[in-house]
């Protein structure tokens, strides 16, 4: 008996040692479990919910496509989703455009103490997200830092109203909030580039600008794509920033979904809107990846 037990344990142990994939899945299993419990089940619930109906406080648990129908019939949801995508795309564009030079600077021009620069980049993250949004409110507000400075300098006679409560304020606030998330992946991809490749391009007759377009940018593309996704995906669903600085013109899909689960009390419609916005984001991401593939092909 004892020897049989031993061989069984040994067999398992042997299998474990032999198989790379078993070891891999073992390593992954805690995370996998959390993802399953914390993401897959809520998703299933959300998906089911989106085919139900809300009548006042009661959930009618019969299958209906009414919520999806509402989305396509009532233009408001569709327009707000479109606006969310547009604002997020713009945030992504602005953030990555501003992050790239900074990441480039740290990767190529900082010789010593790169770590200090990296830490400096993350400083905005040291305060809460809410505080950062409020500070932008203070900066951009009617009696805010910009307006009062311009007033006291005599450059304007009345406070500027276009600074706050519009999509522009949302873009500025989000771009600032997500800057570090964009800088870090771009920095890592730039840091990995062998400097002799850049020298080789110069040696083969290309100017600094052409070298950037033909060598540096394509080789840092993985970092740029990662930055794009990391900024775009979460900002589409953001509802804190638009709620605080967006005003009525800056409302995004996240605000609608939040109200559906809150004040408006229409969970099934909120669930349907969530599902639709997830699918839209997926489609937009696919489009982005397709575009980068095209760029890669064009360069080579």
């Amino acid at each position: 008996m004892i020897s049989a037990d031993r061989t069984l344990v040994d067999k398992i142990r042997l299998q474990f040692r032999r198989s790379e994939s078993i070891r891999g899945y073992t390593l992954l299993s805690p995370t996998l479990l959390i993802v399953l419990l914390g993401l897959l089940f809520p998703l299933i619930i959300l998906f089911t919910l989106s085919f139900w109906k809300q009548e006042y406080v009661d959930l009618i648990q019969t299958f209906t496509l009414k919520n999806y129908g509402d989305f396509f019939e009532k233009k408001i949801y569709y327009l707000i989703l479109y606006r969310s995508i547009r604002i997020s795309a713009f945030v992504m564009f602005v953030t990555v455009l501003l992050a790239y030079p900074l990441a480039y600077f740290i990767a190529f021009h900082v010789q010593k103490n790169k770590m200090i620069w990296i830490i400096l980049v993350t400083i905005p993250f040291w305060t809460s997200y809410l505080l950062r949004v409020f500070s932008w409110k203070v900066i951009l507000g009617y009696n805010g830092v910009i307006n009062s400075s311009l007033l006291s300098l005599g450059l304007i006679s009345e406070p500027l109203e276009f600074l706050l409560y519009n999509p522009f304020a949302v873009v500025i606030t989000l771009a600032h909030a997500w800057a570090a998330v964009a800088i870090l992946p771009i920095y890592v991809s730039l840091e990995k580039i062998d400097r002799s490749l850049i020298e080789a391009s110069r040696d083969l007759g290309e100017s600094a600008v052409a070298t950037f377009i033909r060598v540096t940018l394509p080789l840092s593309l993985p970092g740029v794509i990662a930055a794009c996704l990391l900024v775009f995906i979460p900002t589409v669903g953001d509802y804190v920033t638009p709620a605080l600085v967006g005003g009525t013109r800056g409302i995004m899909i996240g605000n609608i979904i939040q109200s559906m689960f809150g004040k408006a009390l229409n969970w099934p419609l909120g669930a349907a809107l969530s599902i639709i916005s997830m699918l839209t984001v997926t489609a937009a991401v696919c489009l982005l990846l397709g575009a980068t593939q095209l760029f890669k092909k064009k360069v080579s």
């Binding site: 490749l197 020298e199 040696d203 080789l219 360069v299």
Partner: peptide
């Protein structure tokens, strides 16, 4: 120039 590590463009 032919570089020490050849500097072949990986992309």
């Amino acid at each position: 120039m032919v570089f020490q590590n050849y500097a072949i463009f990986p992309h």
